[in-house]
Amino acid sequence: MTELQDLAHKLLDEGTVQVVIGWEDSRRGARPVTITDAEDASRLIFDSRCVHNLATYLNPRRSQVRALGKPAVVVKGCDTKAVAALLRESQFERDEVVLIGVRCGGVVKDPTSDGVLTEETTAPRCVACDVREPRLADYIVGEAQPEPPQNTSLDDMVAKLDAMTPDERLEFWTAQMEKCTRCYACRQACAICTCDRCVVDKTVPQWIERAPHARGNFSWHLIRALHHAGRCVECGECERACPAGIPLMLLNRKVQQIVAESFDFTATDDLDAVQPIGDFLADDHEDFIV
């Protein structure tokens, strides 16, 4: 039994929590699992294939997970940022959940791969990670891990797009948006999409066209990125969930760049940080306003 399995067993056995949400091994790599029986705690694993942001199961939108009882969630450092974002938005109380932090040495892009970290396989979010030891967690398990190989940062890709003309960018994004089938996997995978009723599902009046043509898709992804300004933790789950392969993280990265430059805010696990949208300063820059 590993430290993680022992701890999960103890928490379930004592009745501190009713369910542990973690990862297990399956035929197709690592996958999320809910453990409700202490004897099953031995199924839990953590390695570089544990890509999924399990904070998404704390989202109050997922009432079926709530119904299992008080949860303990295994979180990487990056996942604690999503937990902090939910806590800052009062989606649940800190004592309603037990956080089991794992010391992380980076994860791969694809949980079904063999988990070897190289410059090509390392997930973009692991570049310059500042939370490899989760601070927000109640327990921290595992040994300190070496730093993952650094791959091309998303910033370089965003800079490439920034260097294009507006017409070239419109062409690029239109080509991407044409692929979207509006399955809303991006929304379902997202940890911070907490709305009971998404704006895209509102039909009276209908703000965003629901037909999956490029115009409706364009509006949807534009609004989606905008609603995540200052909230997105850049876990990359939307892009990984996308069956059409739309580079959603470029949009998310750009929005967080704007927020960082304009409002000096980056995604953090600090519970006292103030979310930039919903707050303001009297001297916010307004060089574009006449």
Partner: peptide, 25 residues
């Protein structure tokens, strides 16, 4: 103002020329 700071730059990033939108007081 905060929302439009983000919105304007995001629209530009997606290829909509920000010169088409005037913000004013």
């Amino acid at each position: 103002r905060r929302r439009f700071i983000v919105f304007r730059e995001l629209m530009n990033f997606m290829g909509i020329n920000p010169d088409r939108i005037t913000f004013s007081w």
